[in-house]
Amino acid sequence: MGNPFGSEITSDILLDDIGFLDDWETRYRYIIDLGKRLPEMSESLKIPETLLGGCQSQVWIVPHFENATRTLTFEVDSDAFIVKGLLAMVMAAYNQKTPEQILQFDIEHYFAETGLLRHLSPTRGNGLKSMVKRIQGVAKENS
């Protein structure tokens, strides 16, 4: 099954969509639904090596680098719905991108635009920040 994040579902599309949602309820419902559109991560991949530590909610990430196209793809999941939705937003920006594209992308600006910047703060303990750091690290290794 193809992963629409980064191809059909892009950061620009999300910014557009979210821009139309002017109350918190529709915004959070949208985010939660977005999380449900992430391809399912196989349970066998949810192991300590793929778990990001130090978060209240559990966040798993498995990166793949495809040499031929020089693109990075990610499998991600979380046991909390809102965090999963936020991960989906991150995927719209980072999935199926080259390391250079990832490193150039201004994630803070992106989250600020959606009014969700608070969730990127490390104090939220939701793993989003470590997820972003991890992805940027993988991009650096492969650039």
Binding site: W24, E25, Y28, Q56, S57, D79, A80, F81, I82, V83, G125, N126
Partner: peptide, 21 residues
Amino acid sequence: QSHPQDVGTLLDQQGIAVRTG
């Protein structure tokens, strides 16, 4: 079966401060 963190975030949006974890 909800994750406490989800509950906490959605309560916060409604003006209610709780702790989760």
